[in-house]
Simulated scan of single mutants.
Amino acid sequence: MADVAKWYVIHTYSGYENKVMTNLEKIVENRKLHDLIEDIKVPTEKVVEVRDNKSKEIERKVFPGYVLVKMVMTDESWYVVRNVRGVTGFVGPSSKPVALTDDEVANLGVEQRVLEINYGEGDNVKIMDGPLEGYIGVVEEISKEKKKVRVIVSMFGRETPIELYLDQVRPLE
């Protein structure tokens, strides 16, 4: 039985997120639970705060009161996480843990997936997803920072630039 680790959301006392993450990491290390609990994250974002006419970049928690844990759900792993000081429970109906879907994980930006781009500017590509699925176009520009590509598609006799995500197009063989 090959159990796959999934991301779960645990609820903590407000302000305890980093403490819960640190305590859980220590427990995983001490009890050698790396095969059950793979990763623990407190999602943060950098924001510019203006106080007394001075701007300062600070790191702010995206979801105060929540910690994300990538784990294989077993009685043991559930018990370990549930009994960390500061944890109030898992997010899910009647505290029954519900794993995040792949789309939710992608939208939250929890895991950075390495996207292999095997096409370049000037290459012909086929659109694999969205309203123009099946259309063929020419890559005009690739923006790795935004994870987007601009493709020129010929529609109704006109050249139309379309911005798509990098994984929405494939090179023509």
Rank of each mutant, 00 (worst) to 15 (best):
K70Q: 12
T74H: 09
E76T: 12
E76P: 05
S77Q: 02
S77Y: 06
N83E: 10
N83K: 12
N83R: 09
V84R: 00
R85T: 15
R85P: 08
V87F: 06
T88N: 07
P93V: 08
P97S: 03
P97F: 03
P97E: 05
P97L: 03
L100V: 08
L100T: 13
D103C: 00
E104Y: 01
A106I: 12
A106C: 03
A106H: 12
V110A: 15
E111C: 00
E111N: 03
E111V: 13
Q112V: 15
Q112L: 15
R113Q: 11
R113M: 10
R113N: 05
E116A: 12
Y119D: 02
E121F: 00
N124L: 14
N124Y: 13
K126H: 00
G134M: 03
G134K: 00
V139D: 01
I142E: 01
K144E: 12
K146D: 15
K146Q: 14
K146N: 14
K147V: 06
K148M: 10
K148E: 12
K148S: 10
V149E: 02
R150T: 13
R150Y: 07
R150M: 12
I152H: 02
F156W: 11
G157E: 00
G157D: 00
R158C: 01
T160N: 14
P161E: 05
L164C: 01
Q168C: 04
R170G: 09
